[in-house]
């Protein structure tokens, strides 16, 4: 999917907007049944949350997959849960800024020289490695994938402070223009201030 086709599918999707709690919330329904929900800050226009929901092969509604923002905490931690990660483990999340994609991994109490972060162009992903073999993460950048943009090693940087590793990747200018246009479009959508409005796309 190139930049154009992604823009087209965005335009073709059915959208519902809602303004609530100082956030602009938009729900997209694509023609293939996928759903996307985005939340923007009203003041700064920063993207706070972007999540996806797919239908499973058998037709069941899957859970929301968070792409950007804090993963939704499960409402009640039941003891019947089969298996889940201990809360002392590193927490991986993406929090974008206006100019770059940014990932934060909390609970990583190791010195900075343990980490190595690099781009793997053949697999179109970024890899975080630790020399003490405690943490390893391979992740792609869905935005780049959707627009089929090549990776640039020099755009990647990382810092470590307060047990948190922050990895940043400068957004290419194609992405920047795309996001600006999208935001302009979204602002044109009439958002209801009321939370009880019917969501036409759902």
């Amino acid at each position: 999917m190139s930049v154009q086709s992604w823009t087209q599918s965005l335009q073709a999707s059915r959208k519902t907007a809602l303004i609530q709690d100082g956030k602009r919330k938009i729900h997209f329904l694509f023609s293939d049944g996928k759903e996307m929900a985005e939340e923007y800050d009203l003041k700064t226009d920063e993207l706070i949350v972007r999540k996806w929901r797919n239908e499973s092969t058998l037709g069941a509604q899957g859970p929301w997959q968070v792409e950007v923002g804090e993963p939704a905490a499960s409402p009640v931690a039941s003891s019947d849960d089969v298996i889940k990660e201990n809360n002392s483990n590193p927490v991986f999340m993406r929090t974008d800024t206006k100019s770059s994609f940014q990932w934060r991994i909390r609970n990583l109490p190791y010195p900075k020289d343990v980490f190595s972060v690099f781009v793997e162009p053949s697999e179109k992903c970024i890899i975080i490695k630790t020399s003490n073999k405690k943490y390893y993460k391979k992740f792609s950048v869905p935005d780049m994938e959707r627009s089929e943009l090549p990776f640039d090693c020099s755009a990647l940087s990382f810092t470590h402070a307060n047990n948190t590793l922050i990895v940043s990747y400068k957004k290419p200018k194609e992405i920047l223009t795309l996001e600006q246009e999208l935001l302009k479009e979204l602002k044109k959508l009439k958002g209801t201030g009321d939370g009880n409005a019917d969501c036409k796309t759902q």
């Binding site: 003891s79 298996i83 889940k84 990660e85 201990n86 483990n89 073999k133 405690k134 943490y135």
Partner: peptide
């Protein structure tokens, strides 16, 4: 890598 899991 290494991860700790809580078990139900």
């Amino acid at each position: 890598m290494e991860t700790i899991y809580d078990l139900g």
